[in-house]
Structures are given as structure tokens and as C-alpha cells.
Simulated scan of single mutants.
Amino acid sequence: MHRRAFLDAVAIAAGRAKQSAQEDKHGDVKAKSALSREDARRQGSLILVAEDNEINRKVILQQLMLLGQTADIASNGREALERWLSGDYALLFADLHMPEMDGYELTAAIRAAEKTGETRMPIIAFTANAIKGEAERCLALGMDDYLSKPVQLVNLKAMLEKWLPVVTSDPIAGAIASTTNSQSRSPHDNAGNAPGFHPGYIANPAQGTGASAPVDVNALKALIGDDGAMVREFLHDFRISAAKIAVELRTACAAGQATAAGALAHKLKSSARSVGALALGELCAAMEQAGKAGDTETLEALLPRFEQELLSVEGFIAGY
């Protein structure tokens, strides 16, 4: 039995909770009410998210809210480090590829600072690149777990249950939580990996894809819920953000700036996948790789296809 189910069963048996048969569309994930920031800080459950992509920030904040969690946002690693120094946070989600200070550098700085103290904050890596060896590098640098974007709600829930301290005033549940947490927080499994660490995990971008539509809205709903107004807001925000990035991407390609073009394609890739613009995301992934390789010819060849797909996505969103 999973820890959460065990705690629920104890609560039901003790008369402190009623059993509910209601399940939502995300499996066993049910929407909860989030604490205020101050209450979360006092109770030791405040989360810090380091993510430079605006759409990805909105997605993760919405997901955490659905799971009843409260979080602060840092737009780069340097800002995240400054926030971490406050001592307010119980858990850090960090994107690996950020400006000024990336997730690797952020983790190294935090782990170095922690050596002088007694606490060690769990750090979970977020990345849109499921590159072989990247998970092992995360672990070697002191991260505790790894999630590929776009993160499914049930996977995020499982990660929170594993690494976020359980706050409770109930001595029975507290004792159970203490025992199960000590087991689930074992630094490594028998294979040398952190618990739940999936080095070979790659998010399946084709899952739930509508073959004829440039945007699979169900992919977005699987991440943030099926509230119509919220879905439209996310799609609208993505359309604006994508248009801005596309302008910079065209400029970089025209100037032969392969590295800059690759970085911009990376930025758009994960947010495109999050909202369900999967074909656009795959084109961005191809442009990202070409940019990293300095392959300006491939970038030029991919750009017209990118423009066409972006136009299709924008048209779909405009009519949604």
C-alpha cells in the first residue's frame, strides 16, 4: 500500500476522515486547497521553483496549486540561490538549462553551502532534454530526483509525496509519515540511483496526440486540468510567448547565429509540448540540435517548416 493510501486508511479508521469514491481525470490526483505562502513557510512545506520559461512556470504553479501546494518562482538560478538563502523552502524544483546560473551550478552552490550546516534540501531536476547520461550527471552533482518536461500531474504528485516533508499535528499519522519518509528518502537504491530516479525516462510526446490537429488540447488538460477558461488562458499566453520567441529565432537564423537559434528553439520546445503543440515541439527539438552542432544549413532548411507549423498552431489557438 502506498504511504498516502495508508495514511488515509488510518484517518478513516480513526474517524478523522470520510472515505470518498470520487476520482478525478488524473487517476488518483484530486484538487486540494493550497496554503497561503506564510502558512506554508511556517509549516515547512513551501516549495521553490527555478524555471526561466514563462509558460512552464505557469504550468508548474497550476499543477502545484491543484495538488494543494504553495510555491515561489525564481526565473534563473542566481535568483533561486538568493531565495534559498532565506531558509524558507522545503523542496526545490530546478530547470537544468537557465540563464545566468543553470540548474547544475545552482545545485553545486547549494550543496557546497549545506556542508556547513545540518540540513539538506531535496532538489528535483526539471528538463526538456531526455539526454542519455544527463540523469546520472544530475545525481552525481547532488540532485535527488529527475523529471522530464512536460511533467504529468500524477508523476509530480508522486514526487511530492516522496520528497516533501509531511506536516501534521496528528501523532499517529506523524509517526507513520516519519517511518515511511525515512524509507522513501534513502539516498540511493541498490542500483546506485536515487529513489524514483529514472535515467532512461523520456516523456512520450505522441501520447494522446490528435493526428489532424496542430494542438492536442488533451495534452494540456492532462497537465493542468480541464477547466475551459484556464485552458484558453494557457493557450493564449503560449501564442503570445511563441510569437515573441519566433521573432528572435528568425533573426538568429538570418544572422547565422546557430548557438543563439538553438537556445531559442530549446526555450520554445518545452512550452510547445506542454500546451500540446507536439509537432511544433519536435521541429524545435530538431532546430535545437542543429544549433548546438553549429549547423546553419539545417537551421535554414527547418525554418520554413517551423514557420508553417507555427502558423497552424496560431490559427488553431485563435479559433479555440
Score class of each variant (00 low, 15 high):
267 K>R: 12
292 K>C: 09
258 A>D: 04
270 S>T: 05
264 L>P: 03
242 A>N: 02
298 T>L: 13
307 E>A: 13
235 L>C: 11
267 K>C: 06
301 A>G: 11
241 S>F: 01
292 K>Y: 11
248 E>T: 04
299 L>H: 08
238 F>V: 01
256 G>F: 09
265 A>Q: 03
246 A>T: 07
263 A>N: 07
301 A>W: 03
282 E>T: 14
302 L>K: 08
260 A>P: 00
267 K>W: 01
244 K>S: 15
246 A>P: 04
263 A>F: 01
293 A>G: 05
303 L>M: 14
297 E>L: 14
256 G>N: 05
272 A>D: 10
246 A>H: 07
290 A>W: 05
249 L>M: 07
252 A>L: 02
261 A>Q: 04
302 L>P: 01
237 D>S: 08
263 A>K: 08
294 G>L: 12
293 A>P: 07
279 A>T: 15
301 A>D: 12
232 R>E: 10
302 L>D: 08
273 R>T: 07
285 A>N: 12
285 A>E: 14
293 A>Q: 08
250 R>N: 08
264 L>Q: 00
296 T>E: 14
278 L>T: 15
259 T>F: 10
254 A>T: 13
263 A>Q: 10
249 L>H: 06
252 A>T: 04
236 H>L: 00
272 A>F: 09
292 K>T: 09
236 H>I: 00
291 G>Y: 00
292 K>S: 10
249 L>Y: 00
284 C>Q: 07
299 L>I: 02
234 F>N: 03
282 E>P: 11
264 L>H: 00
255 A>V: 03
250 R>L: 07
248 E>G: 14
296 T>I: 15
276 G>D: 04
270 S>E: 01
273 R>P: 09
272 A>W: 09
290 A>N: 13
260 A>Q: 04
231 V>Q: 02
235 L>K: 01
268 L>C: 01
292 K>V: 13
297 E>H: 14
300 E>S: 11
244 K>F: 06
271 S>H: 03
270 S>L: 03
284 C>Y: 05
266 H>A: 04
252 A>H: 07
282 E>D: 15
279 A>G: 09
305 R>L: 15
235 L>T: 10
282 E>Y: 12
238 F>I: 02
278 L>H: 15
264 L>G: 00
280 L>Y: 15
275 V>C: 09
287 M>T: 06
231 V>T: 01
266 H>E: 02
243 A>L: 01
264 L>F: 00
254 A>M: 06
271 S>M: 00
304 P>F: 06
246 A>Q: 12
253 C>Y: 02
302 L>T: 09
283 L>H: 11
302 L>M: 09
283 L>S: 11
254 A>F: 06
304 P>K: 09
303 L>G: 12
297 E>C: 10
253 C>E: 04
280 L>M: 15
295 D>Y: 13
253 C>D: 05
258 A>I: 05
245 I>Q: 10
286 A>H: 06
251 T>Y: 05
251 T>I: 00
266 H>S: 02
297 E>Y: 10
274 S>R: 07
236 H>Q: 04
274 S>V: 11
255 A>Y: 10
235 L>G: 04
260 A>N: 03
240 I>Q: 03
278 L>F: 14
253 C>N: 14
301 A>F: 11
273 R>S: 13
306 F>Y: 12
287 M>A: 13
250 R>E: 07
288 E>H: 14
286 A>M: 08
276 G>K: 13
302 L>F: 04
261 A>S: 10
260 A>V: 07
300 E>C: 13
257 Q>R: 12
296 T>F: 04
